[in-house]
């Protein structure tokens, strides 16, 4: 039952990370300029896209490798913190708060990363997440 709960949390993380990855290529994509050039927000978008795919990968592994699920939750939590820090703090975005990267990409990523961070933290502290290890110890 507890293992089922962690699986549900991991599935939620998988869905959210895929939404983030898809969003960064569509409705949350950073500013596009008329002349085809791009600013630093473009690289923030690329880094976040990569991070989202990494989190999706970790969530898939966490779903199938029930034994190490707790460790995967911890990894995803660290990724989520990185995801919050990336736009604006680690990689500068555009000057104006009204621009797409500041008004859509950053808050959108923040919301998704906070939700994923919350789910991963819950999963980490759920007793069921370390069930695999306990089972291993007993055998």
């Amino acid at each position: 039952m507890k293992n089922k709960k962690t699986a549900v949390l991991m599935s939620m993380i998988l869905i959210l990370s895929l939404v983030a990855a898809f969003g960064l290529r569509s409705f949350m994509a950073p500013c596009i300029h008329e002349d085809g050039s791009f600013g630093s927000c473009h690289w923030a978008g690329e880094a976040l896209f990569g991070l989202s795919l990494l989190m999706a990968g970790q969530a898939i592994l966490g779903l199938f490798l029930a034994r190490g699920r707790r460790e995967f939750f911890l990894c995803i939590f660290c990724d989520a913190i990185l995801g919050v820090c990336l736009p604006g703090l680690l990689i500068r975005l555009c000057t104006m708060a009204t621009m797409r990267c500041q008004s859509i990409m950053k808050p959108g990523v923040w919301v998704l990363m906070i939700l994923m961070g919350g789910f991963s933290l819950t999963g980490f502290f759920l007793p069921g997440s370390s069930q695999g290890k306990e089972r291993k110890g007993k055998t």
Binding site: H33, D35, G39, C41, R92, C94, T95, M96, M99
Partner: peptide
């Protein structure tokens, strides 16, 4: 235009 992101100010 400012230097960053061709923004109109």
């Amino acid at each position: 235009k400012a230097d960053c992101c061709s923004i109109r100010i």
